[in-house]
């Protein structure tokens, strides 16, 4: 299975990565090389094998639903690249004057 340039661009959008044309070309080569190596796994007949998501047989680990101390607002905001009025600042998401 080989990954096309268009697929690399699609995956980069899904992964939220702005790539240059050069990076798209190089990553296409890298991914094809890696996928070529791991491709044998697709050929295995594993229809009757259950998947393992977790190595230990631990299920439904829960704790009591109790109020506990947590980071203060100041602490939670301390690493924010842009902070104002006790909140993280982000670019406008919903429309301004000429909403499109």
């Amino acid at each position: 299975m080989s990954i096309s340039e268009a697929q690399v661009r699609h995956v980069a959008l899904l992964a939220r990565l702005k790539l240059t044309d050069e990076e798209v070309a190089r990553l296409g080569d890298d991914l094809n090389s890696i996928l070529g190596h791991i491709d044998t796994i697709r050929q295995l007949d594993l229809a009757d094998v259950p998947p393992t998501a977790h190595a230990l047989d631990v299920v439904n680990e829960t704790r009591a639903d109790e109020v506990r101390p947590c980071l203060s607002r100041e602490e939670a905001l301390a690493n924010g690249p842009e902070v104002a009025e006790g909140a993280f600042v982000i670019p406008r998401i919903v429309g301004g004057g000429d909403a499109s």
Binding site: L27, L31, I41, L44, V49
Partner: peptide
């Protein structure tokens, strides 16, 4: 991140991630 996103993306999940978990 690119490899992982591809392996989880629509149409490839069963072929890669599903198979890997069975292996």
């Amino acid at each position: 991140v690119m490899l992982g996103t591809y392996a989880l993306s629509a149409g490839y999940y069963d072929a890669y991630y599903g198979q890997a978990q069975k292996a």
